[in-house]
């Protein structure tokens, strides 16, 4: 009787063990199942590089280049802002701040990570967007730059916490050895600690970027959502994520538009899959001998 019970429990454990794989496959399958249908009507090349996204015109034009570029601009902007700030913040928290300040700052970063993206979107909408409009003298504040700033803040907790872990993983002896040879703390950080933590830092940046690409609600609320090919940071853009979120509710199931939104999902899934894979490989890289 007991043996039977344990057999069942261990079966459940194994099934749950591979559940993650199954869910990834299910996500992939269901995106493909709906998304691939769009290619009955649109070629892959025209879909990815078509310059016009007019999903409800007759006939619909389903080129997602403006959306890809929208995501790209916002992501690049957010990366430019968040990576240096995030790395600096992680160094300060991990290496420089005294214990009490470290705990406070870490709590602050965790708090930022915990605030739902919809709340940040709302706050961005009522504070950041008018500010951007005024500061740059634009007709509207709902622009790529506003989205980039917002997303930078959403990526920073990821970058800071993963990079801080990487800094923590550097053996204490490295630092002590360097200090003992007369180097200053900064020289030690800069020449010894950062190079030793490099793979963790790369992973931190990758995962931060992954977070930015996938972010939906905040970006939808403050980038203005114009599906045109952007030329500057100071014009409205529409990202892939925002397109799905904004349009899925209004589309007819089984229409070309509906399938196209799933196809955008495939593109997003593929990009984030790649980004996360690279980050993970970087983290699990065998340490290279110096």
């Amino acid at each position: 009787m007991r043996k039977y019970y344990e057999f069942v429990v261990e079966g459940l454990i194994f099934a749950s063990g591979i559940a993650s794989i199954i869910f990834v496959l299910l996500i992939f399958i269901f995106l493909l199942k709906e998304g691939l249908m769009v290619f009955r009507d649109v070629g892959l090349f025209d879909f990815l590089f078509g310059k016009f996204w007019y999903p409800i015109s007759e006939p619909p034009r389903l080129g997602i280049l403006p959306l890809i570029l929208g995501s790209l601009w916002v992501t690049v902007g957010a990366t430019i802002i968040s990576v240096p700030l995030g790395i600096a913040c992680a160094i300060f928290i991990g290496e420089i701040a005294p214990g009490w300040l470290r705990e406070i700052l870490k709590a602050g970063v965790e708090l930022l990570a915990a605030i739902p993206s919809i709340v940040l979107g709302f706050i961005g909408l009522v504070t950041l967007v008018p500010l951007v409009k005024k500061f740059f003298g634009l007709p509207t504040g709902l622009t790529a730059i506003a989205g980039s700033i917002m997303l930078a803040f959403m990526a920073m907790p990821t970058i800071v916490s993963i990079m801080e872990d990487a800094l923590n993983a550097v053996p204490k002896g490295y630092r002590e050895g360097s200090i003992a040879m007369g180097a200053t703390k900064w020289q030690t950080i800069h020449r010894i600690v950062l190079p030793s933590a490099s793979s963790g830092i790369i992973a931190a940046v990758m995962l931060g970027i992954g977070r930015v690409i996938g972010e939906t609600m905040a970006v939808m609320m403050i980038t203005g959502n114009a599906a045109v090919i952007p030329h500057t940071f100071f014009q409205p853009v529409r990202t892939m994520t925002a397109t799905i979120a904004a349009e899925m509710g209004e589309t007819v199931q089984g229409s070309e538009h509906y399938f196209a939104l799933f196809a955008i999902g495939i593109v997003l899934f593929a990009i984030t899959f790649l980004v996360n894979l690279l980050a993970d490989l970087s983290l699990h890289r065998k340490p290279v001998r110096a």
């Binding site: 063990g17 591979i18 993650s20 794989i21 869910f23 990834v24 299910l26 996500i27 269901f30 995106l31 709906e34 993206s117 995962l207 992954g210 977070r211 690409i213 996938g214 972010e215 939906t216 609600m217 994520t241 799905i244 979120a245 899925m248 939104l261 799933f262 999902g265 997003l268 899934f269 984030t272 899959f273 980004v275 996360n276 894979l277 980050a279 993970d280």
Partner: peptide, 20 residues
């Protein structure tokens, strides 16, 4: 493979979960 799947699940955009 399981670890990779977990990392990947953690990285899937929330709107893609919506589609799924």
């Amino acid at each position: 493979l399981i670890e990779l799947a977990i990392v990947n699940l953690a990285g899937v955009p929330s709107v893609v979960y919506g589609l799924f």
